[in-house]
Design a binder for these strands. Structure first.
Lengths: 224, 224
DNA sequence: TGACATTGTGTATCTTTGACACTATGGTCT
DNA sequence: AGACCATAGTGTCAAAGATACACAATGTCA
């Protein structure tokens, strides 16, 4: 029985889980850890874990992400809170789910203490997931897709500097269609969210591209 | 100490709170209850309360809403989960916040057991609120405003049947501008979300208006 | 039956979006 | 040095969507 603070009713446990996305190998990918212990031992799951009693929710998500995957300093946003009665065989567990976006130049997931293994998976080739993590991942993907249309969230997949062609490639992967180069550049530049840094990037035996950067790297703006 | 299910760490308490909106007297209004007990005795607050250990989150929000205000069967959607360390003087309390929309023909809030009083307040004239409920209400209002643009959420303020002029009035209040009658009707009818029920409604000494209803009253669609 | 209040309707203009093809530049090869 | 290759970078026209705008129709009431 719980009896702190004068409330003697039994309390659910609270966890945070994070759906971490990146773009890798021309695919949108999700970061999973293989569970070391019970329940769902050896099953793949979203990184996450129990909330410390003196810890902010977002801090918990960041901490678990860092501990289990080594990732920090990335875009992180609360997604939804899952609380079905039987989502965890250990008892009543509420999960505050977040999603995170990792730039493609910083995807060095390293297995840490809590997880047997850490690995990226293409979204259309996910293994069976522990708990209701399949649902969480699906909702995160829908939220991401929706936000593409009316925010600058896709920029969060980009490294500090990038070319317009690289940015276009990211958009094309995310929405799964080809885009017209001229229209794309027109639209992106009209947002006034990025600026030329003044250098050229040469990759391959062809004309080098202008390099751009975000004016406000931390910010995700609502557009239109 | 909590020791169910083998997890001996102290657990936060979990509550749900609901920001209930309606349109009343040409104003967007929020439903508040006056707290009967400590903490924040006599302060106004969002309806809400502690999660039962065998209760779904949404069920908890609905139950507290019904118990405290007599309102049920309305549109309800999860908003955000608030978990700052000091948001509740009783200790660590996580609140899963929801928002609800009540049609203007069903706003009979009645004070029930838990609340000393229940009352509608115009959003620009809110009293000081308990806990972080001011923040919750503000976020709910922003979410509502955002959803107006890309969903049919405004229909949830309408009674079962309504006229196009009544619907337009609701939109005008929500976005706080006047709309052109012809353009408004064109856009609404293009959505194919409502249909003429075949009657006329006469109110006042002038030409009566056609009466419409939602094709899918429960549903909120994403548009555009 | 005339005055009143609100309903209901169409068109013209502007803005935004989408389709479309060629030149520019640096690298590599001979 | 010149030809070839690969990608970068640029403007216009047409279609669709959004906005501005005014008057006739209908029921009530005196």
């Amino acid at each position: 029985m719980c009896s702190q603070h004068g409330y003697q009713y039994p309390r659910p446990a609270v966890t945070t889980d994070v759906a971490v996305f990146t773009i890798r190998g021309q695919r949108l990918q999700l970061l999973l850890i293989q569970r070391a212990g019970e329940p769902y031992q050896n099953r793949w799951a979203l990184p996450g874990g129990f909330l410390d009693i003196n810890e902010d929710l977002e801090a918990c998500a960041k901490r678990e992400l860092a501990e289990e995957t080594g990732i920090s300093g990335v875009y992180l946003e609360q997604l939804y809170t899952f609380g079905s009665l039987n989502r965890d065989p250990r008892g009543r567990v509420i999960s505050v789910a977040y999603y995170a976006l990792v730039p493609s130049d910083r995807l060095q997931p390293k297995a840490a203490s809590d997880a047997a293994d850490v690995q990226w998976f293409a979204l259309d080739q996910l293994p069976p997931l522990a708990f209701d993590h399949q649902q969480i991942a699906a909702l995160a993907q829908r939220r991401l897709a929706a936000k593409l249309d009316y925010s600058t969230i896709a920029f969060q997949f980009m490294p500090k500097t990038f070319t317009l062609s690289e940015l276009q490639a990211v958009y094309e992967i995310l929405i799964n269609e080809r885009l017209d180069k001229r229209n794309f550049r027109k639209k992106i530049l009209a947002l006034k969210e990025i600026e030329a840094v003044g250098e050229l990037r040469r990759t391959g035996n062809h004309r080098p591209a202008r390099v751009y950067q975000l004016k406000n790297p931390e910010r995700v703006d609502i557009i239109k």
